[in-house]
Design a protein around this nucleic acid. Structure first.
Lengths: 211, 211
DNA sequence: ATCACGCTGTGCAATATTTCACAACTCAAG
DNA sequence: CTTGAGTTGTGAAATATTGCACAGCGTGAT
């Protein structure tokens, strides 16, 4: 009964994603092994922290030779990725939404924004960065059809809560929210808010405080 | 000697920014007092945490009537804002850079993106969302002239480190980095990376794990 | 005036996260 | 084979962050 009640922390998940991206780079450059202290630099952490993170995915380092990169990528992916490619929906095709379509256009192995949605009829059926824009009414159908469980929310602050609630009602399980409004939900839906405004204000604050 | 060695934590600073934005909204709606438990909802925290945060800015609540909104805004601003308007530089005028110019275009009281920079000569002197785009060579001059100490970095991953180092060399004190690469620096420069890729991968992960 | 209610301020406990530090291991060289 | 340098895995300490719980206070009702 080795029930893995190994709830990996949010911070660790974030770092795993960062490690993997870096490991893929290293792989391309022909490197095949890596030490924990090398990885620690790219997340501004300690080597011990990296080793701890990597233990969560199955602890496959080797003393004195470090970690095998391709194996690490495989193990991290086993944790982060679904077995099949994940379909993502983008809600809100304004400036930011379009930029996000471009940003996430690269060759992603295990997820892809497959459809965009907006309230503006002028945008319906337009194709932006290779993805078609649909009306919000079509959202439920598309969710079912494409088995979408994750959405990116890039709508104005005023409509963020409403749209988020709509997504939740339609069965979305996680939301990456770019609207400057923190979404509250009672349900078990995971909501990550990337608050660019507070991030910038924080940077401004520390630009004065640091040294 | 009441030296305020009161280093406010990063998390608290972020929340203060969120509180303030919400308080300004409330103010516009004509509300003039607020309770800690109301504020706690917008950051998914507890009322106690809010009160603690507010204590950091000068503890001006009042039993049973809550906090006076306009006073709170003033006190939070005293902490977050510089005395004069902060000038921000945007580095990288691609899709994302342009979207950010739009995003930060609203009426911001205490900071503003005043100039954009790019390596692409086709963009020089073009005006985007009201800001002129300059060549990277002009960066040092503009930093001096406009007293810029904070920059937003929206360049491709490949050039992120190089440009970041350039910014640091030129005297920038804080960087809000959107490139999917964690910037390491020995200096006291504050770097906040908004890693949209790892945020999305985290969301995808928890879309499967939650409930 | 008195009382009950609801909120703030905060010591303290609980939790989460990071770092330290060291035994165990691998490899290469002598 | 033995030694030494360098790395991993991890218990335990250290630190950071959050939540609990309650004393104290202002307010409005009686």
């Amino acid at each position: 009964m080795t029930r893995k009640e190994n709830r990996i922390s949010e911070k660790t998940i974030e770092r795993l994603s960062v490690y993997r991206r870096y490991l893929k780079d290293l792989n391309k450059k022909g490197k095949d092994r890596v030490y924990s202290h090398e990885l620690s630099q790219i997340v501004s952490g300690t080597a011990a922290q990296v080793r701890r993170d990597l233990m969560e995915v199955g602890c496959n380092g080797c003393s004195s030779k470090g970690y095998e990169i391709s194996l690490l990528i495989k193990e991290i992916s086993k944790v982060l990725d679904c077995s099949k490619k994940e379909n993502i929906a983008l809600i809100g095709v304004g400036n930011l939404g379009r930029a996000l379509l471009g940003y996430f256009s690269g060759a992603r192995d295990n997820y892809d924004i497959v459809a965009a949605f907006d309230n503006d009829p002028a945008k319906y059926n337009r194709i932006i960065c290779g993805r078609r824009c649909y009306s919000m009414e079509q959202l439920p159908n598309m969710i079912d059809e494409l088995k979408i469980s994750t959405a990116i929310l890039a709508v104005p602050a005023e409509s963020a809560e409403k749209e988020a609630q709509n997504l939740i009602d339609k069965g979305i399980k996680a939301i990456l929210n770019f609207a400057p409004r923190h979404i509250t939900t009672g349900s078990g839906v995971f909501i990550e808010t990337l608050d660019m405004t507070s991030a910038l204000e924080k940077a401004i604050y520390f630009s004065r405080k640091n040294t």
